[in-house]
Design a protein around this nucleic acid. Structure first.
Lengths: 239, 239
DNA sequence: CGCACTCTTGACCGCACTCAACGTTGGTGG
DNA sequence: CCACCAACGTTGAGTGCGGTCAAGAGTGCG
């Protein structure tokens, strides 16, 4: 769990960090804000989720909203014949539960062992009325997610395999922010990367090899990538 | 203009309709709510935009938010070499301006002659504090947009050309809602449809022909489509 | 050791792209 | 009125990128 939390910029939910929290941080880390907001604490419930377990499926009643405090989750949509599109992945600090009406419009599954903070949706929404700052924070998050979604649409609709993978690696580096030349731990395996980038695992694998042979990245093992030439990688990503 | 407004479920912004408006309708139709909210009226500004004119470009300072009262707009992202991805299109009643931080993350251009209601962003955001219902409405809209974006990611990442076009036509029918068997006016030309679906105009054209020859649709002229077999079209869309 | 799982690599294929020609429509001006 | 032109859409022929199918390598586990 500790190594999971290390991968994000969000501080772990220890007592020390809580001291620095403000109400608006509810959306940053559910568990952090619980101590600050008795009303929220009352409705919060911790939830551990083993790797591979489903949090909810597309079509389920959207009764809860969540914040991720540890681990990695993937969000995806399925077609009846099994084709899959991963629409996003969540790291500690991410909020989950905006994009739906009565039912979830995608499925969520833990990639690694994860912990989440669960809030019954109705109670959570009622709390928003009392804390406008929280609502603004949520609106800001929705904006960011929309911007990311549009970036992903450009990737899926118009970029080549090479550009997609380069974009993915750079985006990962930005989210995890592990400094220049550091080794990035890939939160997704090849299958998930393929389903995120709209490719097949074979093409993902070949493209990793291609970027590696060109000296843009190193792949010390299948779970890690090193950015050897970030500049060149950005060019490869298609600006 | 009248024919533009007819294509959406939103009533035109006449005096009669305004009587029925409530504050939360600000997000439904800017001009509607102006009469109800003196504070909003004070900052609102009408804006006509000819077909083909740019409302703003990706990277511009995001100073304003808008509601569309007539016409059609397209939102898109460009790559340096000219590749384009249309991330969405706006019909009367749609809100514009959520997905950004300081600068717009996409460009917006009028497809047909359009009118918009413009609100300086800072003042608009300040008003949100005073009208929580408006903020909740916006949050709901952001949710819908995110859901639509995820649906589009599935389309772009995993669907065939045939499935993409079928999905597009059905989605259009839902948004315009022109009843069974009616003739749908296409708000986008072939180039724009291609850039929306991540295809080329040739493939879009061929696929229109294919669906027509199979009897799923009729194409009375290049600007109209008739759904002859909605059931079969949904199958073609890949469920 | 054997098995299962993930990833890589190679050979081939096919869907959508590219390139090119042609048709249709609408506007403009002689 | 027609001639001309530009913009848009359709259709055909050929190509190539990424998908499919298949084999093999690397790894972890009982």
């Amino acid at each position: 769990m500790a190594s999971e939390e290390r991968t994000s910029g969000i501080p772990p939910c220890g007592k020390a960090s809580c001291e620095a929290c403000e109400v608006r941080d509810i959306a940053v880390c559910g568990a952090l804000a619980v101590g600050q907001l008795p009303a929220l604490s009352a409705i919060a419930a911790g939830r551990r989720l083993e790797a591979g377990r489903t949090l909810f499926q597309e079509g389920d009643a959207a009764d809860d909203v969540f914040t991720v405090t540890a681990g990695t989750l993937k969000l995806f949509k399925l077609m009846s014949d099994g084709r899959r599109q991963i629409t996003g992945y969540l790291l500690p600090g991410d909020f989950l539960g905006l994009a739906y009406g009565d039912t979830y419009v995608f499925s969520a599954e833990a990639i690694s062992d994860s912990t989440l903070c669960r809030f019954p949706r109705q109670q959570f929404l009622r709390l928003l009325d009392q804390f406008p700052a929280m609502e603004q924070e949520l609106l800001g998050r929705a904006s960011s997610e929309l911007a990311a979604a549009q970036e992903q649409m450009l990737l899926l609709g118009r970029k080549t395999a090479r550009e997609r993978l380069a974009t993915f690696i750079l985006g990962l580096a930005t989210r995890i922010d592990a400094g220049r030349g550091a080794s990035l731990r890939l939160p997704l395996n090849r299958t998930d990367i393929a389903d995120f980038l709209g490719l097949t695992i074979e093409t993902v694998s070949r493209t990793f090899t291609q970027l590696r042979k060109e000296g843009l990245i190193a792949v010390p093992d299948k779970q890690h990538v090193v950015l050897l030439a970030p500049q060149a990688l950005e060019e490869a990503a298609g600006l």
